[in-house]
Write a protein that binds this DNA or RNA. Structure first.
Lengths: 338, 338
DNA sequence: GGTCCAGGTCGAATCGATTCGACCAAGATT
DNA sequence: AATCTTGGTCGAATCGATTCGACCTGGACC
């Protein structure tokens, strides 16, 4: 069932079949119908590899996600879903590459085997080998997140700096004087994970501006870690009355730890975070948070990528999103403790 | 940077470069070194499309996931992660296709454009158009889940029937006489979603065997729905003291509804379910559940698929998993109410 | 009536790999 | 000494599409 077979049965040449399909040259109404009839009968579809070889493009984009070992956060899942969805709308397929390490085979296949027309990269570090690889391979790509050199690539990102600052200001407005930042895992931050560093910067700035007492801690990305993190935090700093966090996966643990300590939210203790809207709404109690529009971000990344593929020479574009903080049920007026 | 370029610079023919790379014919140590040097210098990698065209296989598998609109449950996410992971270990790439509807373009591309060597299908219905399409397209595939005709395809599945029955027996052993089944969404069940039907069957059987009073309800896959579902359930059947469920996404809502009704778990009310191990452990309170090894299932599916691709004539294989029920914190002795 | 153009079609070249048959030289086998 | 391997290499065919140049026909135009 290749194009030659169709041509033979329709009594035309292979090129005519191709033109009938693509419309790149006129084909008489009658032959077109005859060809279409044969195609429908045999269920023919052009071989994707042959087409990709001739056209020099695969109509596929690569999506590089964190290695499969670790669970995706709800926000990351939102990115993936929206990228896949947006790509499908543009008739692009998505090739998944779970890559974190240095010389990842899957990643190498994607970038240098010309398997994809472009790549979307998630979970970018401040210094990221993968970005370097992509830059010198010449494959168009867009980051969800960016490196220490923002101008070197196109990206869509969340303005963690500003957002955490907003959270701190919100807490300060409510009278909180002793506030902690619960960051993501120590390894991730040590490895130069951008959001982690930018959240620290925003936290430090806001704390200084408002003359607060600020504590910064890292916390692994899971419920259990969140719980122990909270215990340690309260033990070391009994005067704390509020937390700002970018660690979605740990929030449930923070809740649990607070309940365990006999503290009720938001009466005795407040939490404000940065999280996917969907998630912040559905967790219990609903989290006061800067609602990251994960769905939109993935779609935007695909848009940018399609533009770069069409014209790799266009200047880089950057989208830094700073959605407003939505008040839900986890922040309230400060009530001094201890 | 194609194979001809490498050949020219190394002073050999294109075929020799190919043989040096694949090892399918002997090449002298000296020329091999010279070729390798050129390859390393230029960073050459064979063009995947050209190779796929000639070899007739793409070294890629398709993974058909539920449409992006709806969120993946933790269990589904576990499948995806483990499939991607297992595929990467076998040096296979994964092409994602979010397809649910009838004539999905993305799905059609995957099955009939010879973009993939095989397909893994998730969220299968008792009658599933996609299975029919795959069957007559001749593309090797493996299901995570199966249809009304189990023998027509290879699959890996969870034995919801047995597992829900085990849950009910466990609850009956604890003295519960009035038990409800919280199924997945009404639309899904109406559409012939296999796990939903098999859970009902297992529930009915166990309830009959133990002479219990059983109530069956459907519930959409989210926290809010779980909460309202529980309210309605208590209102209509105040005598209930336990729930068995396969609706992971609704469990948090059930918890919330119970708390709201002033019922404590497991003192006043018990819940037992079927869920991904990882998730059952991390939710609060930890759910007594039959722990579906989502990670392993994805890996097994990939294994089966690789076998089918290698030899499409092998008889179909079926893996029906029925892991034991792990006791956690949500089931206890019945305490009659009302 | 000759020229031009547009519609409609075909054949051949091309994309970048793999692979088969053929060839040659050097050593092994009888 | 003639024949047979075997290691090592090359040229050409092939996979299945797209696309360019060329060709034919018939109507419009001057």
């Amino acid at each position: 069932m290749n194009i030659g077979e169709i041509a033979k049965r329709a009594g035309v040449s292979r090129s005519t079949v191709s033109y009938a399909l693509t419309g790149k040259r006129p084909v008489s109404e009658e032959t077109r119908r005859r060809i279409q009839a044969v195609i429908d009968e045999l269920g023919y579809r052009p071989n994707a590899s042959a087409r990709a070889l001739k056209e020099g493009r695969t109509r596929t984009i690569g999506l590089v996600i964190p290695p499969a070992g670790q669970r995706l956060t709800d926000m990351q899942l939102g990115f993936v879903a929206s990228v896949v969805d947006a790509a499908a709308r543009a008739d692009l397929d998505v090739l998944l590459s779970p890559s974190g390490g240095e010389h990842d085979r899957s990643f190498e296949r994607v970038v240098s085997g010309r398997r994809v027309d472009g790549v979307i990269l998630m979970e970018i570090r401040l210094e990221d080998d993968r970005v370097a690889r992509l830059l010198d391979s010449g494959v168009p790509f867009v980051g969800i997140g960016h490196t220490r050199h923002p101008e070197e690539m196109s990206w869509v990102d969340v303005d963690y700096d500003t957002l955490i600052a907003k959270c701190v200001h919100h807490l300060a407005d409510l009278g909180h004087r002793h506030v902690a930042l619960v960051n993501r895992s120590a390894e991730l931050v040590a490895a130069g994970y951008g959001p982690g560093h930018r959240a620290q910067a925003g936290f430090d700035r806001a704390v200084a501006e408002r003359g607060l007492h600020g504590v910064r801690v890292c916390c692994a990305d899971d419920v259990q870690a969140g719980q122990t993190c909270l215990q340690q935090l309260l033990a070391a700093h009994p005067e704390l009355t509020a937390i700002a966090t970018i660690n979605e996966a740990a929030v449930a643990g923070l809740y649990r730890g607070l309940a365990e300590a006999g503290l009720s939210v938001p009466r005795d203790f407040s939490i404000a975070g940065v999280a996917a809207r969907h998630w912040a709404e559905s967790v219990h109690p609903p989290l006061t948070a800067a609602d990251v529009p994960a769905d939109e971000m993935g779609a935007r990344a695909v848009e940018l990528l399609i533009q770069r593929i069409a014209n790799p020479a266009t200047p880089h574009r950057h989208l830094l999103l700073a959605p407003p903080v939505s008040l839900r049920s986890t922040t309230g007026p400060a009530r001094p403790r201890a």
